[in-house]
Amino acid sequence: MDEQTERTGWPAAERRQNLGLRAAFADAFVMIEPFFDPENGWGGHSLEHLAYRIVRDNFPALSGEEVHALVVAAHRVYIERNPDRSGHLPHPSELRRASL
């Protein structure tokens, strides 16, 4: 039983709107996490722009907006998990939408 159910007696309502995208996130993150790592950069720059191609190639059913949302979410998760190795990355809100 989760915390919400224990407190109120009612299960929490699902707030996520795109469960398919949520399901793809774990697999996509494993594929694109290396592009955020500073050791894999080129000339002091990260390679997150390549993450878009990897996601598009491996998840062809996703729309351009979904690909962008997934890469931005993965970028944000990488920063949260690796605060000492993410100073080279721009803030997720600064990510431009790649031409999809």
Rank of each mutant, 00 (worst) to 15 (best):
E6A: 02
F35W: 06
L19K: 13
N58G: 11
P11V: 03
Y78T: 03
G87C: 04
H49M: 09
W10R: 00
H91L: 06
L89P: 03
A26H: 12
N40Y: 11
I54W: 08
A28Q: 08
L62W: 02
R56P: 03
I54K: 15
H68L: 08
H45M: 10
L89E: 05
I79F: 00
T8E: 03
G64N: 14
A74L: 06
M31N: 01
V72P: 02
E65D: 15
F36D: 02
H75T: 04
R22T: 12
G20R: 14
I32T: 11
F29Y: 15
R85P: 00
Y52F: 15
R22M: 12
G41N: 07
I79K: 15
N82A: 02
H49F: 10
E94V: 01
G87R: 13
A51H: 06
R53I: 05
E6R: 00
V30M: 08
F29P: 00
E66H: 08
A74K: 11
D2A: 13
I54H: 10
H49T: 10
L21N: 02
R15K: 14
N40C: 04
H45E: 12
G9Q: 00
L89H: 04
R97P: 01
D84M: 09
R15T: 13
R22A: 14
F59S: 07
E33R: 15
A73T: 13
D84K: 14
V72C: 07
L95N: 07
P60Q: 05
L89D: 05
A13Q: 12
L62A: 02
P38A: 06
R97E: 11
V67S: 06
Y52Q: 07
H68E: 12
L47C: 10
H49Q: 12
P92W: 08
H75W: 11
P90V: 07
A98V: 05
